[in-house]
Design a protein around this nucleic acid. Structure first.
Length: 565
DNA sequence: CGGCCTTTGAAGAGA
DNA sequence: TCTCTTCAAAGGCCG
C-alpha cells in the first residue's frame, strides 16, 4: 500500500515529511505555536483577540474569570499522553528520535528538572524543543527498527517524559492516546498481578495475554513506573478511547486475531493483540486497539448494548455480550487527532477549560495550519483508519449509532438565519489579554471566523491534493461566497476515501448548527473551496502559501472589525 | 447526573 | 451522486 508509505520507510517518510519550517512563512505560525506558546498566542490570538474583543464574548469573560484556575489534571493528562506517544513513537520509528535533523514536529523537552515531578505544569519558558520526525507515518519496518531493546517499559517511560511536553504533543500523540487511555497510569502493572482492575469499572478482570503485553509502548506497568507525580491522568480512565473491555478484550472480531503477517502498518504500530509478544511488551504486543471500549465503561448508560443485546437475557448474558461486542470507537479523524494533541496547549495558553471554546480555537488553528501540517494529521488519521479497519474489519461506524445519546444538533430553528453575527449567546470569549496571554476567543466562531484565518486548508493537506493554498481560503470572499458549509469541506482531500473523490466534501459541515444556527459563523469559519477557483498550479497558490501567514493575521482583523462593528 | 456545546472529518443512510 | 446525520474527543456548563 502506497499510502502506508507515508511512512514507507522511516527514512523515506522522514524525508518526505521533513518540513522545513523555515522555508515557509506558515512556519512562523507553527513555530510560534510549537516553539513558544507565548508567541503563539500572539500570532493566533492577536487575531482572535481582536475578534473576541469585538465580539465581546461572554465566554471570554467567563474564561477570564477562570483564568486563574490551575489545570493540573489537564497537563498531567497531556503529559501522559505525550509520554505514551513518545514511547510509541520510538517504538515505531525505531528510535526515531533522531534529532533535529528531522524537521518535523517539535518535541519539547521540559527542563531537565523533570517538571513532571512537580505538578506537572511546565513553564513554557523552560521548555526545549526538539524537532522530530513525523512519526506517524507508519513505518513498515519500523518494527524491525523498534528498539527491541528498549523494551522495558520503564525505560521508555522514563525517557518519554523528558522528551515531550504536554503542551506540545507530537502528532502521533493521538495514537498514543489510545494507549494512554487504555492503560491507566495509576494502576499497578498489570503483569504483576493476576487480576487487573479495570480502571474504569474497577472490576477485576483477567488479564488477557494481550493485555499483558501492552500494545503500546507503555504498558500499564510501565506507566506505573513512570514517576509522574500526578499519577497520570486519571481522567482518561473514564474515557478510553480504545479501551480494553472488561474481561480482557476478547475480540470478537477476527481481525483482532491478526498476526504478524498483518500489514506492516499494523504490525508496527498496533500489533494485533493476538500476537504473542509478551514480555517486552513494548512493541508488538497484542494489545487491543484502543478504540475498543468496554461497553460498560464507556458506553452510554442507556445500555444500548444491553437493550439491543438482546434476547433479554439475564444480565450476565448481557454482560457477556457486551464483552463480546466491545464498543469500538470510531477512529479519530485528522482534526480530532489535532485536537487531542493541541488541546492541552490551548488550554494552557488560554486557560480556557471549556471544550467548546477550546474547540473553536482549535478549529481555527486547524485552518491556519499549513498544508503540510494538516497533511500530517490527515496522514495520521488515514493510518488510524486503516489500522482500525484492519483491527476491526467488520466494524462499521454505524455500529456506534445510537450509542451516544443523541446529540441534538438541533438546528436551532430559532436563529435561523441570521446573517448577522449574532450569535451565540453562549459563550464568547473575551480575551483576556492582559498582557501575557490572551486567549483566542472562542467566540470567534461566528464572527471570528471571518477574521479567522480562513482556512488555509483547502487543498492543503491532503497529500493527495496538495494543491490549494491557504490564501485561497483565507480570502474574505470565501466568507461571503460560500454559504453553505459543505462545500468548504472540500478543502482537504482525504487521503483515504477522498482519494477516490476529493472528497472531502463530505460532509462535513453538515452540522445543522453550523449551517443554520450560526450561519455566518459557520460560513465564515469554514473555508470556502476557493481552490476551485484558483488552480493549484496558479502562481497565486504559491504566493498565497507564503503569504498565508500574513493573511491570517491581517485579514482577520480587518474582517472582524468590519463584521463585528 | 446526563446532555449540551463546539470543532472538523469520516462514514453511513437516505433521497 | 448528493445531502444529511451521527459519532469521534473533551470538559465546563446547565437543567
Amino acid at each position: 500500500m502506497p499510502q502506508l508509505n507515508g511512512g514507507g520507510g522511516d527514512d523515506l517518510g522522514a524525508n518526505d515529511e521533513l518540513i522545513s519550517f523555515k522555508d515557509e512563512g506558515e512556519q512562523e505560525e507553527k513555530i510560534s505555536e510549537n516553539v513558544s506558546s507565548e508567541r503563539d498566542l500572539d500570532d493566533v490570538k492577536s487575531s482572535l483577540v481582536n475578534e473576541s474583543e469585538n465580539n465581546s464574548s461572554s465566554s471570554d469573560s467567563e474564561q477570564t474569570d477562570r483564568r486563574p484556575r490551575p489545570r493540573p489534571e489537564l497537563e498531567s493528562y497531556e503529559k501522559q499522553r505525550e509520554h505514551f506517544a513518545e514511547a510509541l513513537r520510538r517504538q515505531q520509528d525505531g528510535g526515531f528520535f533522531k534529532g533535529p535533523h528531522y524537521g518535523y514536529p517539535f518535541l519539547m523537552i521540559p527542563d531537565i528538572t523533570n517538571p513532571y515531578l512537580s505538578n506537572g505544569s511546565l513553564s513554557p519558558s523552560t521548555r526545549t524543543y526538539l524537532q522530530m520526525k513525523w512519526p506517524l507515518l507508519d513505518i513498515p519496518g519500523a518494527a524491525a527498527l523498534k528498539d527491541s531493546r528498549s523494551p522495558t517499559p520503564g525505560h521508555l517511560s522514563n525517557k518519554v517524559p523528558v522528551v515531550q511536553h504536554p503542551h506540545h504533543v507530537h502528532p502521533l500523540t493521538p495514537l498514543i492516546t489510545y494507549s494512554n487511555e487504555h492503560f491507566s497510569p495509576g494502576t499497578p502493572p498489570s503483569h504483576l498481578s493476576p487480576e487487573i482492575l479495570d480502571p474504569k469499572t474497577g472490576i477485576p478482570r483477567t488479564p488477557h495475554p494481550s493485555e499483558l503485553s501492552p500494545y503500546y509502548p507503555l504498558s500499564p506497568g510501565a506507566v506505573g513506573q513512570i514517576p509522574h507525580p500526578l499519577g497520570w491522568l486519571v481522567p482518561q480512565q473514564g474515557q478510553h478511547m480504545y479501551s480494553i473491555p472488561p474481561g480482557g478484550f476478547r475480540h470478537p472480531y477476527p481481525a483482532l486475531a491478526m498476526n504478524a503477517s498483518m500489514s506492516s502498518l499494523v504490525s508496527s504500530r498496533f500489533s494485533p493483540h493476538m500476537v504473542p509478544h509478551p514480555s517486552h511488551g513494548l512493541h508488538q504486543t497484542g494489545i487491543p486497539h484502543p478504540a475498543i471500549v468496554s461497553p460498560a465503561i464507556k458506553q452510554e448508560p442507556s445500555g444500548d448494548n444491553a437493550s439491543n443485546s438482546t434476547h433479554g437475557k439475564s444480565s450476565m448474558h448481557v454482560k457477556k455480550e457486551e464483552e463480546k461486542k466491545p464498543h469500538i470507537k470510531k477512529p479519530l479523524n485528522a482534526f480530532m487527532l489535532y485536537m487531542k494533541e493541541m488541546r492541552a496547549k490551548v488550554v494552557a495558553e488560554c486557560t480556557l477549560k471549556e471544550s467548546a471554546a477550546i474547540n473553536q480555537i482549535l478549529g481555527r488553528r486547524w485552518h491556519s495550519l499549513s498544508r503540510e501540517e494538516q497533511a500530517k494529521y490527515y496522514e495520521l488519521a488515514r493510518k488510524e483508519r486503516q489500522l482500525h479497519s484492519q483491527l476491526y474489519p467488520g466494524w462499521s461506524a454505524r455500529d456506534n449509532y445510537g450509542k451516544r445519546k443523541k446529540r441534538k444538533r438541533d438546528n436551532k430553528p430559532d436563529s435561523p438565519q441570521e446573517c448577522n453575527f449574532s450569535p451565540q449567546p453562549k459563550k464568547q470569549c473575551i480575551p483576556y489579554l492582559p498582557s501575557e496571554k490572551m486567549c483566542d476567543s472562542p467566540t470567534s466562531s461566528h464572527g471570528s471566523m471571518l477574521d479567522s484565518p480562513a482556512t488555509p486548508s483547502a487543498a492543503l493537506a491532503s497529500p493527495a491534493a496538495p494543491a490549494a493554498t491557504h490564501s485561497e481560503q483565507a480570502q474574505p470572499l470565501s466568507l461571503t461566497t460560500k454559504p453553505e458549509g459543505r462545500s468548504h469541506h472540500s478543502h482537504f482531500p482525504l487521503p483515504g476515501k477522498a482519494s477516490g473523490s476529493t472528497s472531502s466534501s463530505s460532509s462535513s459541515s453538515s452540522h445543522p448548527n453550523i449551517s443554520l444556527h450560526s450561519q455566518s459563523a459557520s460560513l465564515l469559519s469554514r473555508p470556502i473551496p476557493f481552490a476551485s477557483l484558483l488552480s493549484p498550479s496558479s502562481p497565486y497558490h504559491q504566493a498565497a502559501i507564503h503569504s498565508h501567514h500574513a493573511l491570517l493575521q491581517t485579514q482577520p482583523l480587518s474582517l472582524v472589525t468590519k463584521t463585528v462593528d
